[in-house]
Each structure stands twice: as C-alpha cells, then as structure tokens.
C-alpha cells in the first residue's frame, strides 16, 4: 500500500495521455491520414529543430505562469479560476507603462514586471476578500471577474490606449522588449522557470509553505493547530494573482508586444487544467505546460504534413484533461479504494 498513492497519481495522467492519443490517432486515421506520419510531424514541429524548441518554450511561457497561478492557489485549498483576468490586468498596466510613460529599457522592464505582478495580485484580492469575509464561492466570482478584466482590456485597446485605426495598442518599443535568449524563447521563459522553482522551494522547504499546504488539505486541522487560516487564504490569492499578472507582463514584453483582441484568451482555464494534470506539483505543472505548448506548436507542422486540421491537437489536449480529472476523481471513490485494497490482499495472499 505504501507507494500506491503516488503511483496512481503518476499513472492517471499517463494513462489519460495515452488514451487521448489513441483516440486522436483514430480520428487522424478516420480523416484519411497516417497517424504515424502525423505524430512524427507533431514531434518534429514541436521539438525537431532548435528553432521549433524555442517556439514551443515561448508558447509555454504564459501557460506556465497561469498554471502556476492555479497551482499555488489550489495548494491552499482555494480555486482561483481567475488566472486569465489577473494575467490580463498585469498586461494592461504593463502596456500602459511600456507605451505611455516614456520609460524604456531595463528600468521600464523591471517596473512593468513589478506593476504587472501587483495589479494581478490586487485583482485576485477581490475574490480572496469575498471568500474570506463573506464566505462566497471564489470560483464563480473569479470567473465573473475574468470577463470584467477581458472587457476592460477591450476598452484599453479600442479606446484608451488605442493606436491607429485597428483596435489595438501601440507596440512595446524595441528597447523595452524582453531579450531573446534562445530562438524565440525570451528571458520571460527564464522568469517563469525561476518563479516555478521559487514556488516549489516555498511550498516544500519553508515553514510557511508547509503550513499553507496544511491549510489547503485540512482547514479545520490547520485552525486547531493554530495556523492563521484566513491569512493564508488571502495570501494564496494575492500571490497566485501576482504570478498571473507577472505572466501577463512577461507575455506582453516578450511575445505579443501589444494588446489586441484575443490576447490571453483561454489561458486561465488552460492553466487550471494543467495544474490539475500536474497534480499541483509546481515542477510537474511546468512540464505539463510545456507538453501542451508542444502539442499546440507541433500541430501546425502536422497540418502541413498530413492535412489534418490543427484542431485535432486541441481535441487531444481536451481529452487529456477530460480523462485525467475524471480518473483522479475515480481513484478517490471509496468503492475504488476498497477494490484496490482487495486486490492488494489477494496479491499478498498469493
């Protein structure tokens, strides 16, 4: 019994990925293409050349931020589904600083990143406060706030910071953009890695992180053991929002350069899904984000090579999520546990 829990937590996502790929391949075959060719193209497209790898890492960067955002909040037992809104709020303030204040270069970059994190954190404070002081459902509120943020961003690029006839903002000036360190991957990717490592260290190597996890796993026990439960919940919201906001800044300065319709759309929910598949482990979560980015980047090559539309890759991604979360719920069922225990007993008896 000792390691079966950990084994299952690795097995469930792996089996889910396999099932998703089997279905994906079946779809590809039905569409008249060779699954082998398609998968090869997918792989090459994502990791085949240094340039492709860099594209994958660049695409993974915002996903890492939003998935870490979800991961951190979940660790404290709260469901922050508002990563997208917090990401956008970060990018909005970043856009303002980068294009309107006249600041350029490193000072502008540092200020942008800091302000992005602060704004993301403040935006996340709203559901946090309502949760802690009004007992409200943080999930519904954070979703509603996603739309508010998204519409606010729309005001920004269609009105307030609009530049020219097309509804979009001005581009971040060249000298304020993040440095490309490797192909398309920028320092933004490095920042994401550092944030992930810091979260990992915080959660598993500090007393506060330990207590935060305890709050997330059993709030009553945490309270009885003297932990400041409300403080941790609020803190987890703010930090989680700050991570997303920082990601918003990094994405704007590193990849997108301007706010435009569709910016960051879907990143929030994707992030939550990746955190779940990564079992709320920050390092695993980052790996999952890179995996999903690879599926997205590689799908273009797959389309070119086989004519199968890129959205097959979206289906595979969605199925991975569908299976993993259902699988994780299943293994928690008492009946499943009993069955597992029985299996063990039989094995031991044999």
């Amino acid at each position: 019994m000792k390691h079966s829990g950990k084994l299952i937590s690795v097995l469930v996502p792996l089996v889910s990925v396999m099932m998703a790929f089997v279905i994906g391949c079946a779809i590809i075959a039905i569409l008249g293409a060779s699954p082998v060719t398609a998968l090869q193209a997918l792989w090459t497209g994502a990791f085949g050349t240094a340039r492709n790898i860099s594209t994958t890492l660049s695409r993974a960067t915002p996903l890492i931020f939003t998935s870490l955002c979800a991961c951190f909040a979940y660790r404290c037992g709260v469901f922050n589904l508002g990563g997208e809104g917090q990401f956008m709020m970060g990018s909005i303030i970043c856009c303002y600083i980068a294009t309107r204040t006249g600041l350029t270069g490193l000072p502008a970059i540092l200020l942008c990143l800091l302000a992005g994190a602060v704004f993301g954190g403040l935006w996340a404070m709203i559901p946090g406060i309502l949760k802690v002081f009004r007992g409200q459902n943080e999930m519904i509120i954070s979703i509603m706030l996603n739309y508010v943020a998204s519409l606010f961003m729309s005001v920004i690029y269609t009105n307030w910071l609009r530049d020219g006839t097309v509804p979009q903002t001005a581009a971040v000036p060249d000298e304020t953009r993040l440095t490309r360190i490797f192909g398309r991957a920028t320092t933004g990717f490095l920042i994401a890695l550092v944030v992930g490592a810091l979260i990992y260290y915080f959660l598993f190597n500090t007393s506060m992180g330990f207590q935060l996890r305890a709050v997330g796993l059993n709030m009553t026990t945490a309270e009885y053991n003297g932990f400041a439960v409300k403080k941790y919940i609020l803190l987890s919201f703010i930090v989680s929002g700050a991570i997303a906001g920082l990601g918003g800044s990094a994405e704007l300065l590193g990849t997108q350069y301007r706010l435009i319709s569709g910016f960051a759309s879907g990143y929030g929910f994707d992030g939550v899904a990746m955190a779940l598949i990564g079992q709320l482990h920050p390092l695993a979560t980052m790996a999952v984000a890179i995996f999903f980015a690879a599926l997205r980047v590689g799908s273009t090559a797959m389309q070119t090579a086989t004519g199968v539309p890129t959205s097959v890759s979206d289906i595979i991604q969605a199925l991975v999520i569908v299976f993993t979360v259902a699988g994780l719920a299943m293994v928690k069922l008492p009946s499943f546990k009993t069955a597992l225990a029985r299996l063990h007993m039989k094995k031991e008896a044999a």
Partner: peptide, 9 residues
C-alpha cells in the same frame, strides 16, 4: 468529481 472544475473542462 469537483463540479466547477469539470464544468470548466
């Protein structure tokens, strides 16, 4: 499974 999470999925 958690309802909100699965709705999102």
């Amino acid at each position: 499974a958690e309802q909100t999470v699965y709705g999102m999925i």
